[in-house]
Design a protein around this nucleic acid. Structure first.
Length: 326
DNA sequence: CTAGGATCCTGTCAGC
DNA sequence: TGCTGACAGGATCCTA
């Protein structure tokens, strides 16, 4: 699910928790979820000599409590910075490697601190796809990768559908990564102002506007929720052809995208404190800012017309048929 | 170039 | 309650 605001929420929440900690081991519970571009711990199972520090223990099998074989990579590297590009989170490590994390539809990251001396339940930080794994015992059946820190804390990458991944890359190669290299500018990039987005969009004049803003090469980080919200804000029907949009409409669309994402970041995206409210009940963070997304049948906040749901570019699309005309 | 569908997976929900 | 099909917030690949 996680779109830009969720990933940014995670980045902000994790930065102080991870920086300076020392990794003991990265455990890989699901091979498919961990892509090793460096050739350190997975990939070629050959005994051919590989690059890297001789102190690294590679391709080791570890026994878990459950008895499953889990791949592990022992290292002493430390997270030194957390970055975000579009919907990707990048954790740079002290040894020149980086973890490039994409949550796709159902990924989540859960940080579990070490229990204190009194055994008081540790306060977690979690973000991404909201599920019981945010509060349950970890690792669980959805845990794909776990990072164990030397102080006894853990960072879990959980992902029901296994679409997301953690990729190990050289830090200097991050910009050249297949996914990162194709990304368009960040939504707040100045290059999009004063007609910049209009120019980018007009390279695809026949495309439906919703499909165009979901295209990560046009603009990075916009997903289905914020696409619907931004189009609603700008009074633009999602099936309008890009070529029919005026500069003014595109400027409004950019404003709408930015505002809805800023609001979401301000309330903390889909994170633990939205998932579990103070009284222990489960909340839906979308309620805190969404005007149309997942509001099928509800009155339009501007004109009262019931919000409609249609399918555009293969995606569920919510809009107001009165405010957003073809 | 574009649309549209299938695909990777698993879980949930509506309807019967 | 059980079964079935539709659908899910991403991205890519293929075909037409």
């Amino acid at each position: 699910m996680p779109e830009l605001p969720e990933v940014e929420t995670i980045r902000r929440g994790l930065v102080d928790l991870l920086i300076g900690k020392k990794i003991n081991e990265i455990k890989i519970f699901e091979t498919k979820s961990f892509i090793d571009e460096v050739g350190f711990c997975l990939g070629v199972q050959s005994d051919a000599s590989e690059g890297g520090s001789p102190r690294e223990k590679r391709d080791r099998s570890v026994a878990t409590g459950a008895g499953d074989a889990v791949r592990g990579w022992t290292t002493r590297q430390k997270p030194i910075s957390l970055r975000r590009r579009g919907k990707a989170l990048i954790i740079d490590l002290s040894g020149g490697l980086s973890l490039l994390i994409h949550l796709r539809m159902t990924g989540q990251l859960v940080f579990v601190p070490a229990p204190d001396a009194k055994g008081t339940p540790a306060e977690r930080f979690a973000g991404g796809h909201p599920t019981e794994s945010m509060v349950g015992r970890l690792p669980d059946q959805h845990t794909r990768v776990a990072i164990d820190f030397s102080d006894g804390s853990h960072l879990y990458f959980n992902d029901q559908r296994k679409f997301g991944f953690v990729k190990l890359v050289q830090t200097e190669q991050v910009e050249q990564d297949d996914f990162v290299a194709k990304l368009g500018p960040e939504p707040w990039d100045k290059s999009l102002d004063r007609g910049g987005l209009y120019v980018r969009l007009q390279k695809h004049p026949k495309m439906m506007v919703k499909a165009a803003i979901l295209d990560q090469t046009v603009l990075a980080g916009v997903g289905n929720i914020y696409a619907d919200e931004g189009l609603f804000y700008a009074f633009i029907h999602p099936e309008r052809r890009v070529g029919s949009l005026s500069q003014r409409e595109v400027a409004e669309l950019l404003k709408g995208l930015r505002e809805s994402m800023e609001k979401s970041i301000a309330v903390g995206g889909s994170s633990l404190r939205n998932y579990v409210k103070a009284d222990g009940s489960r909340g839906d963070y979308l309620d805190q800012f969404a005007q149309v997304y997942n509001k099928t049948g509800a009155p339009c906040p501007r004109c009262g017309t019931p919000i409609q749901k249609i399918r555009v570019a293969g995606r569920g699309t919510h809009f107001c048929p009165t405010c957003q005309q073809i």
